[in-house]
Amino acid sequence: MAKSIAQEFTKGLWAEIPPFRLVLGLCPTLAVTKTVQDGIGMGIATTFVLLCSNILVSALKKVIPSKVRIAGYIIIIATFVTVIEMMMKAYTYELFQSLGIFIPLIVVNCIVLGRAEAFASKNGVVASAADGLGIGLGFTMSLGALGAVREILGTGALKGDVFGFVYNIPGIFGDAFQPFGFMVEAPGAFMGLGLMLCMLNLIGKK
């Protein structure tokens, strides 16, 4: 193995940070980043699924015949998505409400299937776990950052509750600020994502 476990973990945080570097999983990125809370919640749910599915896919890579591997991966991923959906319903109901349909849709998130196929099916369990956790946290950070940009510009405030961590910063730009309403709408997601992608590419270019 060329890379160490630590490298597998940290590459997800910057070098291959999704969705900006991998440009996968754009659907939830565009849809749920209306607020920081939704973005981070979605990221953490995806991280859980990624971590568990990567571990299991890697552990079962010799058992699952290669012809039906995709079907097998889907079963594994769908199971963990249902697990996280039930857990969120039972313990973080408000977050579940605001994410709604996008939780079950993690099943078809390209990042999860992509990591199972491109990484976990070829590497060991520990490396796959590190990869899943790294990519997942990177995804969480990206969604949180995009959510912050959209929420601050779109509503002029930051407000929410991320797994018990409550924050409320009203009127960041003062009372005279007229929020860019469109930032919390779908077009704002495209603009925000495009600008962040552009900035990351500029930084990456040197």
Binding site: V63, I64, V68, G72, I75, T79, V83, M86
Partner: peptide, 14 residues
Amino acid sequence: VVLTVLSAVSGWML
């Protein structure tokens, strides 16, 4: 067999 077992275990867990 593999897919059946996988689905069964997943169903049982859920």
